[in-house]
Design a protein around this nucleic acid. Structure first.
Lengths: 146, 146
DNA sequence: GTCAATGCAAATCGTTTGCATGAAC
DNA sequence: GTTCATGCAAACGATTTGCATTGAC
């Protein structure tokens, strides 16, 4: 598990090299922030975290956006947009999962259900779709907020 | 089915009266556009459609946004945000359904799967969530685009 | 040395708001 | 006549872009 982080960084290095692009500290920092995050973060939250955790790096918000687009494109991270809280990112190093979201306090619970995954495959097949990914959110009120 | 539209308009009239608000042509137009739409529309698409379909109405974009917020709040319409295409709306007069989305051409297929619906309920119960709604999207490549 | 990536500021996009006017009740 | 809703334009927040500079290779 702990070693996973190194693997993801290596993956990033490989992708960058393969594409003939350059490996920069900034992209690495953004990816690391997301790997260590327990929650889903917006671009601005990531930017603020970097300023706190890596005060020497002097990264610009535009670079954060550019790094996020890049990392999402190469599938190292993923984004979801819930309600009015804007686009949020999470690392793809985590196993696949869906989300239960409390509409009162914003709490997010992650879960996986094998049965649902199977049905999704079946539905895609029925419609002649080749599925690349999916996202599912259940909105509701968590036990604390009820 | 054809009669459904009238029912929805009556529902809107009822809600508006109940809340002590005013019944306006603008809110009706926005709702009608969504009821007749075959696809999911953004606020701007709705605005443009109104200018074409109801050229005499002289509705402002701000009013479209206000009408959409209102209609969503009273649950006559619903919104989803996929990928980078922004927030899109659809009428709730349709039955509940989920979405299969082609990432190449943007085609959207709607479906419902009872088994998945049941599992979702179960998962929510396990986590002590009171579910109010959910949204599920399968992304992939449709038969035409493969 | 070359070319991609960066930081910064300006520009842009979608959405919201303030306010005077108009329409529903 | 009162109050809510509208249209317009200005304001806003999030994201993107242009450009000169820096840093990776």
């Amino acid at each position: 598990m702990i070693n996973d982080n190194e693997k993801v960084i290596d993956e990033l290095k490989k992708i960058v090299k393969q594409k003939g692009l350059k490996y920069t500290e900034q992209r690495e920092i953004v990816l690391k922030i997301l790997m260590h995050a327990q929650e889903h973060l917006t671009a601005e939250e990531i930017y603020n975290l970097i300023k706190i955790k890596e005060p020497d790096s002097n990264i610009g918000i535009a670079t954060v956006y550019r790094a996020l687009s890049f990392l999402e494109e190469v599938d190292l991270i993923a984004s979801i947009t819930f309600g009015s809280e804007g686009k949020k990112y999470e690392s793809n190093a985590k196993a696949h999962h869906d989300h239960l979201i409390c509409t009162v306090c914003g709490k997010i619970v992650e879960f996986v259900d094998e049965e649902i995954e199977k049905r999704q495959e079946k539905i895609a097949k029925q419609n002649n779709f080749k599925v690349t990914s999916h996202s599912m959110q259940l909105y509701g009120i968590c036990s604390n907020c009820q």
